[in-house]
Design a protein around this nucleic acid. Structure first.
Lengths: 164, 164
DNA sequence: TAATACCCGACTAAAATGCTTGGTTATTTA
DNA sequence: TAAATAACCAAGCATTTTAGTCGGGTATTA
């Protein structure tokens, strides 16, 4: 498990994809514009995301990428792993000087901890991130209503508290 | 939050420190030998660990480093943060093109997710890692007893199951 | 006073990162 | 059928980061 900007870009792009799911395929240039990520960098990321079966592609005009399955079935760990081809933390896996002694501590420890982090991120799905984002949007809109005193007397546009 | 080899080294070194806590200060050259991490690299890491008040130092012969507090009060997140001076994920924090729109998605999302990971690693303390390591040692010793048929008739050397 | 071991800063080779350039190919629409 | 679109692909590249070295200190102990 490795957490760098590359993973951040990938997760962001996937959330963008999830948020525009209903509009059909999303082109990378759209994502590039919205999230200000270089187009060709996105291409590289999506090549990996596709290889990992996280997205499907549609070529030609009107084409783009789509989530391969529900955003409730795509987990952050999948995304990060997909673009971050994992480094070989076990480079001395079978070496002579790494037998039972404390030298192995390094790998044992980290691979164990790494697994814990991985398990954790395997429990966070795209839907939950999208959900949070949507909530923020709503909250923002609501406070905007309050701030500018533009709130309409019709309160039906505001979601009930239980839904937030 | 960033997870690289640097963090792995730091965590490993701290676990090593924790495992030799009862022997007084541990010198970096000891850790260097045991964990095969370059001495001067360790020095750099420990300069940061000390600045973060995770370790105390004792100079002169017989000196070395000690945990500043109980290994149950030192968390993995502290260690990783200490050596990995956090990257500025909010570089466009106040920029004009980052107002309320979707451009902000990047930072919002990742800082949120990053916080979740951070919270998770803030719940894992050094003691639990050391504990696991100890358990592995015991298990290994026990299976060694079984494998080589060297198990003595006196079973008092084996810990009761409840202690494992 | 000699040995130990922390402390400190500058430097560096190698790797990774984020990104560019310059294409090709499949598909749709005019 | 031609033009536009957008995925696909490979090579290269400037910068940053990483992991580590080197060469000095300075405090403490024996």
């Amino acid at each position: 498990m490795k957490l760098t900007a590359r993973g951040r870009y990938a997760v962001t792009a996937m959330v963008d994809l999830a948020m525009h799911e209903h509009e059909g395929p999303t082109s990378l240039s759209d994502i590039s514009d919205r999230q200000t990520i270089s187009l060709s960098y996105l291409e590289q990321l999506f090549a990996k995301l596709k290889k990992s079966n996280l997205v499907d592609s549609v070529r030609g005009p009107g084409g783009g990428y789509q989530l391969s399955r529900s955003c409730r079935e795509i987990f952050i760990a999948d995304i990060v792993d997909s673009v971050n081809e994992q480094v070989d933390a076990t480079r001395c896996a079978g070496k002579a000087d790494c037998q039972g002694g404390e030298t192995c501590l390094t790998h044992e420890l980290w691979s164990d901890l790494s697994e814990q982090i991985h398990n954790f991120l395997s429990g966070v799905d795209l839907a939950s991130l999208v959900g949070k984002r949507e909530i923020q949007k709503i909250a923002k809109r609501q406070s905007a209503f309050q701030d500018t005193s533009l709130r309409s007397p019709d309160k039906s546009t505001l979601l009930p508290a239980t839904q937030i």
